[in-house]
Nucleic acid binder design. Sequence first.
DNA 1: AGGAACGTTGACAGCGCTACCAGCAACGAC
DNA 2: GTCGTTGCTGGTAGCGCTGTCAACGTTCCT
Lengths: 366, 366
Amino acid sequence: MGRKRTKSGKIRLAEVAELAGVSPITASRFFRNPEALSVAKRTRVESAAKELGYVPNLAARALASQRTEVIGVLIPSLTNNVFSDVLRGIYDASEGSRYSIQLSNTRYSILQEEKLLRLFLAQKPAGLIVTGIDQTTESRAMLEAADCPIVQIMEIGPDPVDMMIGFSHYDAARAAVAHLFEQGRRKIGFVGARMDPRVQRRLDGYVSAMKDAALFEQRLVVTTATPTSVTLGGALFTDLLAREPNLDAVFCANDDLALGVLFECRRREIAVPEQIAIVGFNDLEFMASAVPTLTSVRTNRYEMGKTAATMLIEAIDGRRPEQPVLDLGFRVIERQSSSPRHSDSRPTVSGVGTANKMVALPSSHD
Amino acid sequence: MGRKRTKSGKIRLAEVAELAGVSPITASRFFRNPEALSVAKRTRVESAAKELGYVPNLAARALASQRTEVIGVLIPSLTNNVFSDVLRGIYDASEGSRYSIQLSNTRYSILQEEKLLRLFLAQKPAGLIVTGIDQTTESRAMLEAADCPIVQIMEIGPDPVDMMIGFSHYDAARAAVAHLFEQGRRKIGFVGARMDPRVQRRLDGYVSAMKDAALFEQRLVVTTATPTSVTLGGALFTDLLAREPNLDAVFCANDDLALGVLFECRRREIAVPEQIAIVGFNDLEFMASAVPTLTSVRTNRYEMGKTAATMLIEAIDGRRPEQPVLDLGFRVIERQSSSPRHSDSRPTVSGVGTANKMVALPSSHD
DNA sequence: AGGAACGTTGACAGCGCTACCAGCAACGAC
DNA sequence: GTCGTTGCTGGTAGCGCTGTCAACGTTCCT
């Protein structure tokens, strides 16, 4: 209510202070630490600000206070569904806080990341969210020298720069392969695209699980540096099939590839899961809807983004979390595409708890 | 080369100027308008800045110059593939320019949009990109009063605030229905979710095309305000089928719904396209890979974002485009899912030019 | 040769806000 | 009753940069 066009000159803090009958500095305090004011002045400033439609000048604030209220976010891709979920979480968490998000796209290049990091750091951000744990030495040094809280997201690993939230892609891949073993599969192929560090670790997990079972063969692995797509899934699967016609399962590094494999099976009239089982990664929405429904490894992407931003904001405000490293775990969602061979074809959308784990961390109470 | 930790005090413009042996103001000019300097001073300042690793303080610059180098972007959703493509275009175009992107998510709420707009405008952005043409009256007024260039994206309509880039969702839907008519389909259902203004206009286009052919029936339309998903596509289609068992085609308001319909057909053993044809909207990557391949209306999302940001930056720099309103058109990509009934089942991935159109605009040369 | 015009440079002031410190009143402890 | 102590408020002095305008040297024109 009471909105008015403020055409006659701009509304500065001084105007608010004047209307409220206090000094500018008191008005300033109202916006930064309202509790420090007496109740009388607080309400006076509040209503004055509202009446004038005052909006603080962020540039002046940043200049005077020598810090910004910007959270820098570096992610590898804007189009990948995985990151858009994470981003949504980050934006949701930042909303309502006084921090704004500055987003940049590294395009899966750690050199680009380094460049952007330098840019970001120069603006003295309040906090930083970076993707993954594979920064350049230079980036790592900059991050460690930065005097703001930092969260690394998407995966967990040894020696975090500061805070860290994610899960083990390696363990998740092992769990997926273990699930296929349980279903009696032996000739399990791996299909991967882009091969960024996280996909690489999924591959590592697959390889180790297969080796543990003495089932590993190099020709079961088909990968490419090409960006992922559904179509690519079909192509890689075709390649895989040519190398190993007796394949009985495919573990796909992501769900798009899995969908592509499913379509390719349909095109070739390969029965899923009777002939070949399919397991994806990420558990995008469509996996539960496909025919047959597709098994996948569920990851908590939205929660990851939201928690990362929340932790970061808490840390900026001086309340460091008691657990600086958070493993959000994963979960193999078993569906028809990896049912036993003589499946009755009924959905089996039951999450198993086995793979849902939390890594033990220092100082874990609560 | 020559990177060094600048630990001893911060590098300000004054330091650069001192090292270069010029006044601070000259150094300042170097960064804003290098041509105004003599070659000698220019090189001196340049090397001084490089040697000291000078990075301008944006807050101080914004405060002193009373303007920022921020482009505000308001989009309805972060997770929708459509917008992530647009966003990628925007970010790509902004890269290399001196402008940075400030992104906010309206969540399909025009009230939220109004709120964010107010916030953005208060920071005096260099330019603004907003989604669609359905702002609140208040938002519209703010946009018109804003003293920065503005681009409306995603669709075109009458009286733009400033610049506009998109296409006619109405025409695109009509073209999709016309294509189905050409294939001999008559009982064509419409499936839509979320029902934001653009989806609504697709529905309008569908309705008008059906009415033109005297084939419209209300029960052929199934919509919901629920956010879209593949699973929802199946559910809405189930609903539609219950209302009209003799359906021979479905026009889906987006590709996710179309994929859901395809899966549901498979579940019900409905032959596509023999029994029912499917047409989607947006032409996401997976459409070409599905079995059968899925017909869709291709839209130029990445280009839209990229062009919007490019136009905006040009306008900010004082070079207004000769064409303030740009129709990027669309194209019906015909695939198997809408082949004639007695299809030989071979792919027909041929784009037709018929639906690809450009609206006539004032002062169109070049 | 004198003056205008241009290109280049610098001095000054101030953008709107906050850090810092000082001041004042009210209160309790001794 | 005096002396901290606390809670609240205000004054002063910039934060680092740029807009404006004036001044300078040089060139070109008449």
